[in-house]
């Protein structure tokens, strides 16, 4: 941890002479020393509380929430997991059918990951390694796609997919996702390929490997961390996406993704908020698990090419 070592050297000197105890420097040091912890505590509270509250409401009974909306914890006797069975079970048995939504989300998200990587890996390799005509223009094009507002793209894609009759299908949505993500994905992967020394590939070439075999045997295994990070990143985008899911799938409840399902049901007065909170937990937990499992990999990825939002 080179950075942490460096940060230690910036530590303030402990032996302040008495006459300088109330100098501007000493006062500022003391104030910021305290302020720092206040800020950290405040930020943690603000970032974590909504998620805590989400989990809390999902395991409380609705009548108790209405009786005491300000409670910050739940007593063991109050614990209530019926919300989860209610939100997961199918509408026929009185539930909200989130199991079906989860299946849809998973299908779209895994499909997007597979297809994006399949397309982006060769592309990223080409942009990083091979000198071809128009390489620079292609990179510029991909960057502008990354900055492009999705609301502007929503109009023509909505119209076109309506016209060819593919608007209500998961496959249609999947294709839209891939087209939106593939440019960012190439950008992230290219950055990683750039860091792999060419000499490794050269020695493989000397040993008689062709270009494809070099890619397959040398570059891909070396790029594995980046590929995994990129896959997780794509999964998160596809799992979280809302606008296109809304435009494409809203008419058919059996096709809803978890995001779309929660947003549609959140408007209804008949469904208890606690049940919908259970739905929110179901929507959020996969993302939190992925994020904490691969935090280091992902933060590097996020800085390289952050979510379009």
């Amino acid at each position: 941890m080179a950075t942490e070592m460096r940060e230690h050297t910036v530590q303030e000197p402990r032996d302040v002479p008495p006459d300088r105890q109330w100098s501007r420097d000493a006062v500022e040091n003391r104030v910021f020393g305290i302020l720092r912890w206040v800020v950290i505590a405040g930020l943690l509270l603000v970032t974590l509380f909504p998620f805590y509250y989400m989990g809390l409401l999902s395991i409380r009974a609705l009548d108790e929430v209405i009786l005491d909306p300000g409670a910050l914890w739940v007593s063991l006797s109050e614990l209530n997991f019926d919300t989860y069975t209610s939100v997961l079970s199918s509408p026929d048995s009185g539930g909200q059918g989130f199991l079906v939504f989860m299946r849809n989300s998973a299908l779209v998200a895994f499909g997007t990951v597979a297809l994006t990587l399949l397309v982006a890996l060769p592309g990223a390799y080409a942009v990083s390694r091979l000198e071809f005509f128009g390489r620079r223009q292609v990179s510029a094009l991909f960057l502008s796609v990354y900055l492009f507002p999705s609301i502007l793209l929503a109009v023509p894609l909505f119209v076109a997919f309506t016209r060819i009759g593919q608007r209500g299908t998961l496959v249609g949505l999947l294709i839209v996702y891939v087209s939106q993500i593939v440019a960012v994905s190439i950008y992230m992967l290219r950055n990683y390929f750039d860091t792999i020394p060419v000499s490794l590939e050269e020695s493989a070439a000397l040993d008689g490997c062709g270009r494809l075999s070099i890619m397959w045997r040398i570059s891909l295994p070396l790029a594995m961390p980046a590929i995994v990070a990129n896959g997780l990143f794509v999964f998160m985008i596809a799992w979280n996406e809302f606008l296109f899911a809304l435009l494409f799938l809203v008419e058919d409840r059996d096709k809803w993704t978890v995001s779309l399902g929660l947003s549609q049901l959140a408007g209804s007065i008949e469904i208890p908020t606690t049940v919908l909170m259970a739905g929110s937990v179901i929507l959020t937990v996969p993302i939190i698990v992925i994020f904490f499992a691969a935090e280091r990999l992902l933060t590097e990825g996020l800085t390289a090419g952050a979510e379009k939002g």
């Binding site: 970032t47 809302f242 995001s259 929110s280 929507l283 959020t284």
Partner: peptide, 17 residues
């Protein structure tokens, strides 16, 4: 990591909470 949560959490869940 905790401070990154609002950014990675699904927008639908965050707005609902």
């Amino acid at each position: 990591a905790a401070m990154l949560l609002p950014y990675v959490a699904p927008v639908v869940a965050a707005t609902f909470v």
